[in-house]
Write a protein that binds this DNA or RNA. Structure first.
Lengths: 340, 340
DNA sequence: TTGTATGCGTTATCAC
DNA sequence: GTGATAACGCATACAA
């Protein structure tokens, strides 16, 4: 055991062959004698050889790796998304790694730099959207990338795969309006985020259609920090601000809102009806029902990977990819008298 | 805009200086004229330069990056752990990226290879533990690593940071036994995993102490797949196998068990008492109470990073690190008549 | 079928 | 303070 990284040279020395032969044998090139190849592979395995992709990609220009940059690893929505991305990527013989931005602009810039500096072939990113500047970092460096779940409407050059957020917002609000709720608290993400804007538009459209105006006091911006939604809901209840429905930007925020209501002794669904977004209850079993808007993460992940690989493999093609995946209401009612 | 990666050479051309000077200026070496440095930095920023750490680490031998290899990104426990690791690493000016193994041996091997091949300075890993072979891949390549949450008892050379799983298992079982439950279903992880073994030992010790023997039919192995716990619990209920308490290996399994019981119309906590592990309810607000064993992820993350950095910086020091962080019962009762 | 030479982008060393 | 040169580990082109 060397106690340091095993290189092609180490194997070459052991095998009495040139570095080149080792390299070609391990890459299964066809101009190596089968016996030689076998012998080399055995030695490589024995020595615990792990290729240095940093060196390899420096020379070859590709690494069969893609970086996935997400805004919140602790949100199961992204955990599921990452899993789905990984599965699709693996089918195409690509490996992924994940970098977290915590919805922070500086961390996002760092994340992109790390990805680029590790010579990834492409990047899938759910952008924090403080500005498009970080995206231009990828553009300028010629790295193929696809936006996932969010888009920049002012930047037609950026490809994306999103779900139909406007429709989702519309369906969510309509779902509650149809149940007779007229004052719907919208726990939305910050407005810089495209999906927040679009869901808001849908929320407004549903109200207009119902002939209702919306009290601006009912729209709150929730940050990524745990406890933010809880505090907002608590304040509303404390001040006896009237509302009976809640539409949450995502299911984790919805959970927190439900928690806050319970704390204050409010009854769900007797006093409040709630709907979330992402439909994560379809991918993990949680012991309370929550209606939600399905954004089809699996489909989103698959298309995002496929488009990215397409761009990686045909860098000169100018094709533009803008995919909007359909959304739908998934209605979950209280089963056995429990809340929902 | 070049439309390809910006290199030091590009900046050197623009600035009319040598590549070496650019490199030294951007790295804030002190033998560069302040004016030169400033001019260079401006140009670099303008051109959207991103250092190629793949090339840099090839030469320098380090990258200020560590890889975090976890078994299930979709489990919020790991999401929180990753966040905490990231925070500590950032304080020391290290960047992390995450690779998922889905508790699969081949994916784990691939993950380790990716990490090593990207020239990371060290690895934090929650091993899948099919064998210690994958760990030896790191050992043989001289990459510092620290096990997080799991350990190899037969391999005294592998450093780790874990929580006191035996005590955790003991406390969990005792918590339920003290409430009068004598038949406690243990939804454990597979036995190859050290924490599963140790929690099982604790579970047994609590029973012995109470003068009770344990029915082997009450111990089930739950895989990583969503739905596994649900099916096991449903089968138990269907067959009317008697039990009134459940101890789940982690909180996500506990959620699923509660879900399954509710589906069958079982009442919690009237008919069943449940306790989980990881205490993720302390880091996200979920609208139902769940008692759990606190494993102090924050502390675990902090220590793991510190130990890893120590090993990176003092590679010759033979110091061995084996840290066991205390566990405790966090009891959560039903608040407003809801279940718990 | 195998070996030799070259260069990827960066950093370390040394000369000026 | 700055520039020239070599080297990291690997893959490619080409020679043998």
């Amino acid at each position: 055991m060397l106690g340091r990284k095993v290189t092609l040279k180490d194997i070459a020395n052991r095998a009495g062959l040139s570095v080149n032969t080792i390299s070609r044998a391990l890459k299964d090139k066809d101009d190596i004698a089968p016996a030689t190849r076998q012998a080399i592979k055995t030695i490589a395995k024995e020595m615990g050889y792990v290729g240095n992709s940093a060196a390899g990609s420096l020379r070859s220009g590709h690494s069969r790796t893609i970086a996935v940059i997400v805004s919140d690893v602790a949100n199961p929505h992204f955990g599921i998304l990452v899993k789905d991305i990984e599965n699709t990527a693996r089918k195409h013989n690509y490996t992924i790694f994940v970098i977290n931005t915590e919805e922070n602009n500086e961390l996002e810039e760092r994340a992109i730099q790390i990805a680029i500096s590790k010579n990834v072939d492409g990047i899938l990113i759910c952008p924090a959207q403080y500005s498009a500047e970080n995206m231009h970092l990828m553009k300028r460096n010629g790295i193929p990338f696809v936006l996932v779940g969010r888009r920049f409407v002012d930047e037609p050059a950026f490809d994306y795969v999103i779900c139909d957020d406007e429709k989702g917002g519309y369906l969510a609000a309509k779902h509650l309006l149809d149940q007779g709720h007229t004052r719907i608290l919208f726990l939305n993400a910050p407005q810089r985020i495209s999906s927040a804007q679009e869901r808001y538009r849908g929320y407004m459209r549903a109200h207009e259609e119902a002939g209702l105006s919306v009290d601006p006091a009912l729209t709150k911006e929730i940050g990524i920090r745990t406890g933010d939604a809880k505090e907002k809901v608590e304040t509303m209840v404390e001040r006896s601000e009237p509302f009976t429905g809640i539409f949450a930007f995502n299911d984790v925020i919805a959970w927190e809102a439900m928690y806050a209501l319970q704390l204050r002794g409010c009854k769900i669904p007797e006093e409040y009806a709630i709907i979330g977004f992402d439909n994560i209850h379809s991918r993990m079993f949680v012991p309370f029902p929550l209606s939600s808007i399905s954004s089809s993460q699996g489909e989103m992940a698959r298309r995002a990977v496929e488009i990215l690989l397409h761009k990686i493999n045909r860098p000169d093609e100018e094709h533009s990819f803008k995919e909007v995946i359909d959304t739908a209401v998934i209605s979950r009612a209280a089963a056995n008298g429990a809340h929902g």
